[in-house]
């Protein structure tokens, strides 16, 4: 009963924070609230027994994301302008989508049911056999690193790719590409700034 109460309180806080994020115009406040939102989500994950996920969400969502967004705000400005166009069309789209999804939830198994299809497929095998096969008490690590190691290799590659993409976007000096556009083609090939490239 206490757990249910904690669930409901945390979820309500998350909803309130999300709506505050939607309504506020000061982007600084929005970024701070998104950090709080992540922390609430992390607490929620602990209540739902997903300790590994909660750990990650607390470190990533409340830590790194907030820092990156603050760095972006320092470069782009902190105020959001009020929207000039009408908002009834997005509101209608969102309402219809939300209603359809809500209707779908009535087909889902009740929250916490041990006999829900998702809990009957491979999960019992992992829980029963992983200790004998992999020898680790933490089933999440066994599945992540061993049973689904191929998936995780893919995820690590995605992070690698994202880092490379950010390097491409922000690695050069400011105004490098603008220089290319304005210079005549002959000078484009000369290494003017001495940094090893031809920009």
């Amino acid at each position: 009963m206490i757990i249910t109460l904690i669930d409901i309180i945390l979820l309500t806080f998350m909803g309130a924070t999300a709506i505050a994020i939607l309504r506020l115009r000061s982007l600084f406040a929005v970024v701070m609230l998104s950090g709080i939102y992540s922390l609430l989500a992390a607490s929620m994950f602990v209540a739902l027994d997903a300790v590994d996920v909660a750990f990650t969400e607390a470190a990533v969502g409340a830590g790194i994301s907030t820092v990156l967004m603050m760095a972006t705000l320092a470069l782009t400005g902190e105020r959001e302008r009020p929207a000039a166009h009408t908002t009834w069309l997005p509101l209608a789209v969102v309402t219809v989508t939300g209603a359809a999804l809500l209707y779908a939830t009535f087909d889902m198994p009740p929250f916490g049911a041990a006999d829900a299809p998702v809990n009957l497929h491979v999960a019992p095998r992992y829980l029963n056999d992983s200790f004998g096969e992999v020898g680790l008490p933490n089933v999440v690590t066994s599945v992540l690193a061993s049973y689904r190691g191929y998936d995780t290799l893919g995820e690590v590659t995605v992070i690698f790719t994202a880092a490379v993409a950010v390097m491409i976007l922000l690695g050069g000096r400011k105004g490098d590409d603008a220089g290319i556009k304005n210079e005549p083609p002959k000078e484009k090939l000369a290494d003017n700034d001495g940094d090893g490239d031809t920009a």
Binding site: D52, A54, F55, T56, A59, V60, G63, P137, T141, L144
Partner: peptide, 18 residues
């Protein structure tokens, strides 16, 4: 300690970066 309790490479990487 990620083998025995909550944790692992993803979390450790983020904490070290922080």
């Amino acid at each position: 300690h990620g083998d025995f309790g909550p944790g692992g490479g993803f979390q450790a990487g983020v904490i070290l970066a922080s």
